[in-house]
Amino acid sequence: MTKNHRPGELQMIPIDRIEVINPRERNSRIFDEIVGNIKAIGLKKPITVTPRIGTGGSEHYLLVCGEGRLKAFRALGETAIPALVVNVNDEDAFIMSLAENIARRQCRPLELLAGIERLRNQGYDKKAICEKTGLTPDYVQGILILLQHGEERLLVAVEQGRIPLNAALAIVGAGDDDKAIQDALQDAYETGKLRGKQLLRARSIIERRQTLGRSMARGTPRKRSEVTTSSLVRTYQKEVERQKLMVKKAEFTQQRLLFIVGALRQLLADENFTNLLRAEGLETLPKYLAERVWSRGHAA
């Protein structure tokens, strides 16, 4: 902190000099509510920033807490915002931001969990992460296990409360063995870890996990295959085979239709059969069949 700031000093800080260190996406409805509240009654709680000196000696600030409020002020056309200036290093600033997100539970689950993973990667053990985030040791341990296995789909389900953490860990422990996974679900049901809707949700999550994978990634571009003479020949051959198969299916369908038409002609030539059809109200045929059974327009 520079000598111009006292610890915890409240100041009006230019918005264009504030840098967001832990950005996150925000629900548009919630953001509109923040903007509306600030416009109606003003800012109830200042944001928190920490000062830094740039390469040219100019002072700027890292945002510690209050990204939504900062964006709302910017959306309202304000050029400065009330901020509490604190003296913390980059790492502590990130941890403070993460802790606020965890406490408010308004961030997207994967963003929250990615923050826990970042703390782990920075060398913090489970106990230290618990102390800094306020989470329980069992929860942190379970989340770290899911992170290590790349189980994003299960992580989101746990954070959203769709399935309990211990059930997710049981699924991970079963690996990719379908029988082992079903046994894990059965055990979770019998021990009371999964009941009712939670069991149905767990099955749905497992099916999506098996079909779509563990990751929630979307929009990954497919690698375009290089077009060569060989690839064109293979494509042509496949198309020829596909059309040959279609011709065989058409011929087979035509043969079955001819058989049906012949059988109907023989049956309709039997007076007893036609009388039975009339009694049941079934003496008419679909136009497509009638035109073939009675080629000259004859009616029963």
Score class of each variant (00 low, 15 high):
C130L: 09
G42S: 12
R104L: 09
G66R: 03
L110V: 04
E117H: 10
R29Q: 10
D125S: 08
R108M: 14
L147N: 13
V49F: 03
T133L: 08
I116V: 15
C107D: 15
T48E: 10
L110C: 04
F73E: 12
I38T: 04
Q122T: 01
R24F: 04
C65V: 14
C130E: 11
G142Q: 04
R74E: 14
F94E: 13
V49E: 03
L119N: 06
Q148T: 11
R26L: 07
E111Q: 13
V64R: 08
D90Q: 12
I30E: 13
S58L: 08
G77E: 09
G123D: 03
K44P: 03
R69N: 05
L43V: 14
G57Q: 09
E67F: 11
D32L: 08
A75M: 02
E25I: 06
A93F: 02
I81C: 10
R120V: 00
L98P: 02
M96S: 00
V156N: 06
G68T: 08
R153N: 07
A99Q: 05
E100M: 07
R24N: 01
V88S: 01
M96L: 15
I34T: 02
I41R: 15
Y124V: 02
E131D: 13
I53K: 12
L144E: 12
L144W: 03
R153A: 08
I47D: 04
P51M: 06
I21C: 02
E151R: 08
L76A: 02
P109D: 06
L112V: 08
T133R: 08
T50E: 03
I47V: 15
I21A: 08
N101D: 09
G150A: 07
A80T: 12
I143V: 15
